[in-house]
Amino acid sequence: MGDRLAGKVAILAGGATGMGRTTALRFAQEGAKVMIADRNRAASDETLAMVRDITPDAEVVAVDVSKWGQVQNMVDATVERFGRVDVLVNLAAILMLTPPLIDVEERQWDLIMDTNLKGTFFCCKAAIPAMLKGGGGSIVNISSSAGLDAWTRSLPYNISKAGVIHLTSVISGQYTPQGIRVNCIVPGPVDTPQARGSSQSADLLAAVAAEHPMGRIGRPEEISNAILFLASDEASFVSGATYVVDGGARTSGRRS
């Protein structure tokens, strides 16, 4: 138990599973009040129960981040429950594998873009006014190494995650002077339900681990460590930055 987020109110969009869940737990251990926002109700309730073992200051709200009304409701519910918003972590994302460009279906493009990029935009748009009212805040967007490097298995996912990186820079330029820090994390391969699902086979995930310079892929807790740093006041002079957390995968010449 620590106090690196003591008294801070955090919204975790996509907070029910994977890195969202480990972040909810870590934030609670560091003294934050946590709103778990996800469209997966069952997983949200599971995560809530785990967080409530640490702190009573936890709640869930159902949200599809691609729907503006629901996003606005997510922020309103947080302010109603906890009185303010200090931290927003944008973890909600979908990854669908797609064929090469000319065979990508328009609706695949829209589904991925609507959640990953428009959803991040919506969450920032709704949370920033609440943060300004409280004197400032910290936003942590989760991109992906697919947003930096070509990754052929899903063009729309790549582009949506590249967009998240640039969205981070521009919002930082606009709101850092008003006390809101905006940063981005680029995780490499991490062992989440999403990664297990989209790798299509346990063998493939094992192959990625075998080729990785660390001989393994990341644990979601390791991404939560970086999120904690950027969310906390320890990063009070960090804004507009994109932090790669990939165990050195990008330096190995074998980009998975």
């Binding site: 850092t176 660390m214 390791e222 970086a226 960090v238 804004s239 957390v245 165990g247």
Partner: peptide, 18 residues
């Protein structure tokens, strides 16, 4: 805490660049 971070360049400039 940064066990899965290597080869990264971490900017700490208060958003000066943005």
């Amino acid at each position: 805490e940064s066990a899965y971070v290597s080869g990264s360049t971490v900017i700490v400039d208060g958003g000066g660049r943005t």
